[in-house]
């Protein structure tokens, strides 16, 4: 039944996209985090997708292979009055780029919606197939 595989394929994509959305949410939430006691500010995280074969060759799902950390140095702002300022008066914020994250969020949301629609169409077709011959 190749139609039933569609639910596995689209389901894996929906789950991967929601994980991406989750990572975007934590990045945006930490956009203004300053360096903690260890001197390390929050590093933005990015998911990497990978194709995952589901039985047949023509059924290719998706999975999140790795969640990598962005290694660019954090934003440094001169603010000597800030309690977390270092000896030179600089405060290190996280390296999250809010604009990039918003774009990422819209892309994830659109892909999520696409896959949900794929599942809805497959469901409607399957229900009609069940009534075949009546």
């Amino acid at each position: 039944m190749s139609m039933l595989d569609i639910f596995n394929v689209a389901g894996s994509a929906v789950s991967a996209q929601s994980q991406r959305l989750n990572v975007v949410a934590s990045n945006l939430a930490n956009a203004d985090t300053v360096a903690g006691p260890d001197g390390q500010a929050y590093k933005a995280r990015q998911v990497t997708f990978q194709t995952q074969l589901m039985g047949a060759a023509s059924a290719a799902g998706v999975k999140v292979s790795t969640i990598g950390e962005d290694t660019t140095p954090g934003r440094r702002v001169h603010d000597p009055k800030h309690p977390s300022a270092d000896g030179d008066g600089y405060v290190t914020y996280s390296n999250v780029n809010a604009v990039e994250e918003m774009v990422n969020m819209i892309s994830a949301s659109r892909s999520y919606q696409n896959n949900v629609e794929v599942m809805n169409t497959a469901k409607a077709l399957l229900l009609k197939t069940l009534q075949m011959g009546s």
């Binding site: 190749s2 569609i6 194709t51 892909s111």
Partner: peptide
């Protein structure tokens, strides 16, 4: 249909 669903699922891979 399954093939196209796989393509849509992998649009960001």
């Amino acid at each position: 249909q399954r093939l196209i669903a796989s393509n849509i699922a992998n649009a960001d891979t």
